[in-house]
Nucleic acid binder design. Structure first.
Lengths: 97, 97
DNA sequence: ATTTTATTTAGATTATCATCTAATTATCTA
DNA sequence: TAGATAATTAGATGATAATCTAAATAAAAT
């Protein structure tokens, strides 16, 4: 029942609110870095850092498309987990019985 | 679909591995501070700090019993969430179909 | 009442992390 | 090929968080 480094990296990744926002954006669909950047105030370097943390945790995947890089959510156990968390966490207001 | 401060405090609370270990200990049952402390290397002050973070996030509850304080998991939406996370995160090895 | 035990609080230190600017890499276009 | 665009990497800085020691609070036992 030991926690693996990979699992730990997940908790680290979702600890930051900006990264959680990025994940939420990507729920709508894949996005280039520039497209993501449009939603935030911080620099491109900072965004790149956040994306890297998410990538290390395998919460996102990247592919190149010309000079841009397209980020997508890694729709696996981990993504479903986040959706579940979101739903459950919002469960304060209206419990659906 | 805005994240509340309370929800944010949850992510912060589970971001630290020591606090995750504490939560896992408490899954077995309620424990005094001293009993928890026996599992860790750091000081009582540090433990107190971590317990406070968990309490702020309402992941744990405290009651007094003489001179000790007994901590229990807050068995609510949030606790179930953690159990789910744990199960799902471990789901690498053996998917139960 | 004094001492001991359990825990928290205060204040300081250290480590980690988010962020910035500047420089670099890679691709595309004129 | 030169210049423009997209993104990452390097290195520095500031903020936040984990940890420590020492002091404070509170209950129990002697």
């Amino acid at each position: 029942m030991q926690e693996t480094p990979k699992q730990a990296s997940l908790f680290t990744a979702i600890a930051d609110i900006q990264r959680r926002k990025i994940l939420n954006l990507l729920k709508e669909g894949e996005l280039s870095v520039a497209a993501i950047k449009a939603h935030f105030d911080f620099s491109g370097a900072t965004l790149s850092h956040h994306l890297n943390v998410l990538k290390q945790a395998e919460l996102v995947r990247v592919r190149r498309q010309g000079q841009q890089r397209i980020y997508t959510l890694n729709l696996s156990v981990l993504e479903e987990l986040l959706l579940l968390m979101n739903q459950l966490l919002k469960g304060d207001e209206h419990e659906k019985p």
